[in-house]
Amino acid sequence: MAVLMEKTFPVRAGAYETAGEASTTIKRTLKQLGVSADVLRHVSVACYEVELNLVIHSDGGELILQVEPEKVTLISRDQGPGIPDIGKAMTEGFSTANEEARTLGFGAGMGLPNMKRNATEFDIQSEVGVGTTITMSFALKA
């Protein structure tokens, strides 16, 4: 399927002040493209969660937005540190977030399960010392 649009947003590790800016831009971009409010909310929530994860947990990475006629895809790719136990990380309530993230109201161990719940398709690949890639797609209803 032809990719109508692709945009890459770099996300810095530990940049709590600006965390969410990529998600805000992505939401506004998709809104301009006419994506329905319902789908838009699912994409936005998952996007914000994954962007926060990059800020809180990664050594830095990027968010890639791809728009196709029938779906929106979000790819989060980082340069480490990788997740030792994905099963554990996907469990609600399990969190390795630091105090700073918790002070801001995050780190409750809801992020990954919430992404999976909002996405139509969800895939996570991770290798310790290499990095983590999360791919989420969202079907665009006619």
Partner: peptide, 15 residues
């Protein structure tokens, strides 16, 4: 009772 910019950003994401 939480006051930081993420309260607004979270709200924006959820409408």
């Amino acid at each position: 009772g939480l006051i930081n910019p993420h309260v607004v950003r979270t709200s924006e994401m959820l409408d």
